[in-house]
Design a protein around this nucleic acid. Sequence first.
DNA 1: CTGAAAGCGCTTACAG
DNA 2: CTGAAAGCGCTTACAG
Lengths: 339, 339
Amino acid sequence: MAQKVKLSTIADSLGLSTATVSLALRDSPLVAEVTRERIKCAARDLGYIYNRRAASLRTSRSGIVGVCVHDIMNPFFGEILKSVENELDRQRQTFILCNHHDDLAKQRSFVDTLLQLGADGLILSPAIGTPASDIRLPEENDLPVTLIARTVEGSGVLGFRGDDSYGMGLAVDHLVALGHRRIAMIGGTALTSTGRDREAGYLAALERAGIEFRPEWRIEGPRNRHSGFDAAATFLQIDNRPTAAACFSDLVALGFMYGLSRAGLRPGVDIAVTGYDDIDEAAIATPPLCTVSNGQSEVGRRAAEALLARLAGQPAADETILITPELRVRQSSDYNWPD
Amino acid sequence: MAQKVKLSTIADSLGLSTATVSLALRDSPLVAEVTRERIKCAARDLGYIYNRRAASLRTSRSGIVGVCVHDIMNPFFGEILKSVENELDRQRQTFILCNHHDDLAKQRSFVDTLLQLGADGLILSPAIGTPASDIRLPEENDLPVTLIARTVEGSGVLGFRGDDSYGMGLAVDHLVALGHRRIAMIGGTALTSTGRDREAGYLAALERAGIEFRPEWRIEGPRNRHSGFDAAATFLQIDNRPTAAACFSDLVALGFMYGLSRAGLRPGVDIAVTGYDDIDEAAIATPPLCTVSNGQSEVGRRAAEALLARLAGQPAADETILITPELRVRQSSDYNWPD
DNA sequence: CTGAAAGCGCTTACAG
DNA sequence: CTGAAAGCGCTTACAG
């Protein structure tokens, strides 16, 4: 590799100063049109590579936004990430991604890295057990935070998520309307706001329907496809088995349906099943999955917008914005009532 | 937020020089034990945040490794990423992730960003159509590249991937052994090494079995769950319909099986199906998916190891390492032969 | 419209 | 074992 090309290399080659070159490359109107063109040509010819570390050290703006969620492979986050990426791209911000897998230490080390890199902002779905102080730390060090999907009490920052309690209510109301009186809820944990709110929505819907909740109907824990699969075995052993299962997420529901099939039962025929999120796969699954659309692309877009607005100088807000979910009725909630 | 704490803040507070503080924080034996401890305490108390941009500008080492693949949500990459992450974590390297979605412009802009940030290395699954020069550019600018999953002719860098031709042969041989003589191949594209090699493996297996290939058996294109689903409709219209389908990937196979079910056929009973990758979901699917394990965690681990070795000064190698895949027989390849 | 000079916060020879 | 000083490659007032 040749000697490294820097601003001064270009400046020297044209007999200009680095100041002029720097301004020209960033399209400053202070530099004469002709000069600007000559400079840009030279930069291209010399294979100049802009050194962002140097620039960022000087300006204390890095153009980096961190995004940290528990599982980037979950299609639910996929959609959020896609819309976050769209917004950030538009503002020429680089986004760097982290998977914390609900591991607090991992989340902390990522936040540390962002601080060390002088990142401009953080979009975070906080790991289970995140204390408010873990969110105030970056805020106090000039790293603005926007929460998505989950929120943290007392964090004092803006958050965007679906109205989980209302959404779960939609699913359970639907099952009740179809005639079900014994309805289980599969998956989720009280350790996250999502889990708590969806469970609250489930319990409230039972109460609205005048159904008395039975503890064995609530199978806590599963949050991915595999544990949804395992939960089917547990479900099938419930005394006076429920005729319907409202699942914490589509992934859990899809795994749960695999589990039912494995046990020789037909989801949507022998057991009614609902999911949550309306991921792409829901519509093509066997049977098509009845679910609740969670507005994930709106969550992603608005979180990114809000963060960019703060970078542009808007003051911080301490508020949680709830996106209203919608029921998507599909065959998995059908059920053959015994005559 | 208070005034920013930097090395000199600590130095001043203790009446030392920044040189000593810098050395102490990085555990240099040059600094006396006692002094080191005093410095570390002070750093903690003052809430010091290490400025990596400044350090990196000085040392021209950033501690950043870029990882860029076409689809981070594909579970196949999930496993690769997990093992890459493990290796890099161990060396305290930060990894930043990019989804190029097979968009060359996007891939280029990510490589640019890495160059600007002074990244130490890049692990890349090259986008469709990546010219060798796009890989030599970073190499020539001190950004070593290691390829995964796909390779590029003439790129001159180290690559790790499964032996796709051999692996697809395993699947098709298995179908042949079960008695199938009309076998389709669903998905993949000749635009990637993976697609070309798996197709070659399919064709070679047919030839080994003395089966004459018919063009209508080859449904090119699908590379995700949704297009696998759509391909089922196409498949079902093939004249003298095949009794088995070897799919390009597990995602394609799982979508394809959904598509068969939607059309009222039973995958694994009416049509034998195989996948490729052996993702987690394969074992719990309905029916369990017969597939080829692709050694993805080995690919990820070895690619990361190789990159780290280069960062440690080892010379570049121009070689493609093939990991040997293994067949995983499961029920989706069963088939009810008409008596 | 262009240039000379200072400074962002580190690390690294070098000196003592 | 510790300190003074230069320099990484930019950008930004300031001067002309």
